[in-house]
């Protein structure tokens, strides 16, 4: 039994990887008080930019991931200009970014529909990969999965233990106080939004150059929105985000293993599962108003004009 579960669990880890990148990026932006609903758009822009560069240079994911990060950060700056500098409605700006990103990526992607890329080979980490169950699940993955572990550790540590983390949280909790002691609130928010964009871009590039190494229009298929929901589910805490992402990875991967596990349900219902699960976790977490209020960055979604 456990042997047949190992590929499912390993698949869940890989499926969760884009959610971890995009979710961590959005989490950092939201911690500074900016809600960017454009994750889906930034992810798709990152996906096509990463795919295009990977295909044109022949360097695969090694070129695709940085290109995706740059493209994601660049589109995030459009959002930032309108939502931060012009103090426009953040939710609506995010929606505009998503609509724009879907269109832009499909427009550029037209040239790349018939390409495919080699993808990445898994790397077994010596010693660790030999641990029963945990080894093949966690330590026989591609390099980007390991990068997601490192990114998680860096973000969690930065938010919890460093001056920078304190500053990010302070800007989100009380922008007026941060401004009064002389911190550049808008500059810090710009930085956080750029980081969120770069992470979403990496998530997209992972999808298009590693996870399913080809370009399909709208290929993120709502993962950007699920990442936004995960941040709420995680109550703005990195560790809970990581666990949530793996949970969703498992739900996502279920549809590919359902037959093998003896589950006989129409494929569309299994495919709808991650989205239905998102609603369920939102309900579960949101019904506890106190828990939500306790962790919600106080200035979330509110524009800052000094």
């Amino acid at each position: 039994m456990i042997d047949s579960l190992i590929p499912v669990l390993a698949g869940a880890i890989a499926a969760a990887t884009p959610l971890i990148f995009a979710g961590l990026g959005e989490l950092v932006a939201e911690r500074t008080g900016v809600i960017n609903l454009g994750v889906e758009g930034m992810m798709l822009t990152g996906a096509i930019a990463g795919f295009a560069l990977a295909a044109e240079t022949g360097y695969g994911a090694a070129a695709g991931l940085p290109a995706g990060a740059l493209a994601g950060a660049a589109t995030a700056m459009i959002f930032a200009f309108f939502a931060l500098s012009l103090a426009a409605n953040q939710a609506a700006c995010g929606l505009a970014l998503t609509i724009f990103g879907i269109g832009l990526s499909a427009f550029i992607g037209q040239h790349y529909v018939s390409y495919s890329l080699p993808g990445l080979q898994p790397i077994a980490i010596p010693l660790l990969a030999d641990i029963p169950v945990i080894g093949p699940v966690l330590f026989k993955q591609d390099a980007v999965v390991y990068l997601s572990f490192i990114t998680f550790a860096v973000v969690a540590w930065t938010l919890a233990k460093t001056r920078l983390g304190l500053l990010l949280k302070a800007v989100g909790e009380s922008p007026d106080a941060a401004h009064a002691i002389g911190y550049p609130v808008l500059g810090i928010r710009y930085g956080a939004v750029a980081f969120g964009g770069a992470m979403a871009g990496i998530a997209g590039a992972y999808l298009s150059t590693v996870y399913t190494p080809l370009w399909v229009q709208n290929m993120s298929a709502g993962r950007g929105w699920i990442a936004v929901a995960l941040v709420v589910f995680a109550t703005w805490k990195p560790t809970r985000l990581l666990l949530g992402a793996y949970l969703f990875g498992a739900v996502t991967i279920l549809q590919f293993h359902a037959q093998g596990l003896g589950i006989d349900v129409p494929v569309q219902f299994l495919a709808a599962l991650p989205y239905a699960a998102t609603i369920v976790v939102l309900v579960v977490i949101s019904r506890d108003r106190k828990l939500l209020q306790l962790n919600l960055p106080a200035s979330l979604g509110k524009p800052f004009l000094p």
Partner: peptide, 8 residues
């Protein structure tokens, strides 16, 4: 898809 670009 240019429609989406204009909409955004």
């Amino acid at each position: 898809a240019i429609t989406g670009i204009f909409q955004g």
